[in-house]
Design a binder for these strands. Structure first.
Lengths: 170, 170
DNA sequence: TTGGAAAGTCAACAAGACTGACATAACCTT
DNA sequence: AAGGTTATGTCAGTCTTGTTGACTTTCCAA
């Protein structure tokens, strides 16, 4: 009964999933899921004198060790003043090391110290645990769809950063 | 060296999509996609004296007209003082109407004015356009997977809000 | 009827984004 | 060698949006 009904709806409407109501649900799913996504690291960081900005910096330095300040800037999409405030505290606290470039001595190449790597691991561990649970619960096909939609939602610039961080099998 | 190491890890794990690398990509996909997701409304709002917080309030008042401040509070997950600042400007500017409750005179029931509904439409129009393009590009199966994963990523509390806003066919 | 709980408001503060101006050092082209 | 550009760092000030604390009004139950 319900099956035939949903069948007829699907066949009568070519693109059922593109109604405004479906789109609204997609929008709200993004809103709520992003909250869940950032919750765990935020909770860990709230104890220390760090915030989400520090987490982001640590995450991408970990992904791309030796990256320059400028590169990090374009990935994070913030101003250098904003990033610098964060980076300064991380360097002062001994979580990040900024080495002067060999080839171009104007550049600073960023690395996590052991202590920085430890914090990164705690933060991403919490986030990965949630992601892993969600992926496991949803199944491989859903995960593939999840990534396809998310990539389609990015700007080309963002997509470029996303794909550029590592080689990424399409 | 590193290659053979990662290969051995891949072959030893039955669930390929749950490797740390796959999870990391999921995390970054969320980060970049959320940026794309909020970009358009942010750009529209940056001209006015409003921000993302106003957008969120307007969105959920539109979804659930007559909602109380308290209810909105628990949906948005901020303090009442924080929401109140936003709400005050919206009421003063004539975008939102706050009617004193008939039954309980402590409560304020929130509605969009015509002008508020107009702004809501501009904002959600931009967001829906991007979502629609992404959905269309990704295809129906991917969209289903996208939503499945996002729902699995929410806290139960958030999921409750998400599902509670309207009846939502599982 | 009185005291506690709940809804909402006002004030002050902090994090983290922004702009603008400026400094320094290193690179690069002429 | 000189001058312009690039990469980075810094100071000052503003804006949005989150926080806590203190307060009023209203409701409800002992």
């Amino acid at each position: 009964m319900t099956e035939s009904l949903s069948m007829s709806r699907q066949s009568s409407e070519a693109l059922l999933y593109l109604t405004d109501e479906q789109l609204r649900q997609g929008i709200e799913a993004m809103f709520f899921a992003y909250r869940g996504f950032t919750d765990d690291p935020d909770r860990i960081l709230s104890g220390m004198s760090y915030g989400r900005a520090h987490h982001r910096a640590i995450h991408f330095i970990n992904c791309a060790p030796g990256t320059t300040v400028n590169n990090l800037l374009s990935i994070l999409g913030v101003t250098k003043q904003s990033l610098n405030r964060v980076l300064r505290t991380l360097v002062n606290d001994g979580l990040v090391e900024a080495r002067i470039g060999q080839k171009d001595r104007r550049e600073r190449h960023l690395f996590l110290t052991d202590e920085g790597a430890q914090l990164e691991h705690r933060l991403s561990g919490a986030q990965r645990a949630r992601m892993r649970a969600a992926f496991r619960q949803a199944g491989p096909e859903a995960v593939a769809g999840f990534r396809t939609v998310l990539e389609a939602m990015m700007d080309d610039t963002l997509l470029h950063h996303y794909k550029g961080l590592r080689d990424y099998p399409t």
